[in-house]
Amino acid sequence: MIEVQNLTKNYGPVAAIKNVSFEVGKGEILGFLGPNGAGKTTTMRILTGYFPATSGSAKVAGYDVFNQINEVRKRIGYLPENVPLYTDMSVKGYLNLAAQMKGLSGSAKKKAVDRVIEEVGLIQMRSRLIKKLSKGYRQRVGLAQSLVNNPEVLILDEPTVGLDPKQITDIRSLIKHLAGDRTVILSTHILPEVSMTCDKVTIINRGQIVVSDTLENLTKRSTDFSEISVLVRDHGKDVGSVLRGLPGVKEVKSVETGKDNGTRKFDVSLPQDEDLRGAVAKAITGADIELLEMASRQVTLEEIFIRHITKEEDHSPEPEANETATANSTEEEEASE
């Protein structure tokens, strides 16, 4: 549905994105993840035809974003990051305008507006002025606006930024519900958002794709049982030597819990090829020690993210200060648009 190949966009001498390539299939939700100023908005703006790329090609819904941009525009719904709305208009008035701007008229327009008002849950608010709405409802109006032409592709730029926790949950489930068989690209720098709503993740940093895979693969790849942590109440027993005495245990580290309530925590390294978690548990209880918690260290998306991004930075030949300056100026460029 969306094919992006070697997309590059320069703001003067600064490259906002470099050789970005990815693909999103029909009905998939892609999480576009990256720190602020990484090039998420730039990529999305190219896909929506806001501005063209310096080089590379992109296809949305089978149409080229450079040569057939009007065909693309008819088939996408876009919600920019700051949710720009005509706040002096009523919800219904604004959605009517959006529908007409997208080429709908007459009864088709009326139907479409009624449909999106219901879909995003704005029935109570339909005749309110947008400026009187809370941020959460404005976000819904923004979503409704993007949906009014029943687009095949939805492009949402940080759709939950600036909302309170309840609104965030609401908007996320709304997006999931709205997705249906639409293709969705959703940018964010909030990691749980991706694990909750997306099928695929593309991590972008400093304008380059760092990793692009399904969420499942990404987390599986970096999870194993070789690192576990145990929490015990020891009653003066030497838990360390019990653990070290187990065959196969490579290393035992005592971890400072910071709480003086008779509990102690250990990080235990086990061999990669063998699941020894059961043996560890048996050994501890066998030695008459209370086992309170045992957990394999699941690698979270946060860690994958940090790992990929810091790996990038280690390999970077340029001095750090310069890099930050570049990143900042890219951000400013984006802001000034």
């Binding site: 703006r45 929506t48 806001y50 525009r73 008819k74 876009y78 720009p84 959006a98 701007m101 648009e337």
Partner: peptide, 8 residues
């Protein structure tokens, strides 16, 4: 204006 630019 960003939306206007991306409407058909």
């Amino acid at each position: 204006i960003e939306l206007l630019y991306t409407y058909p």
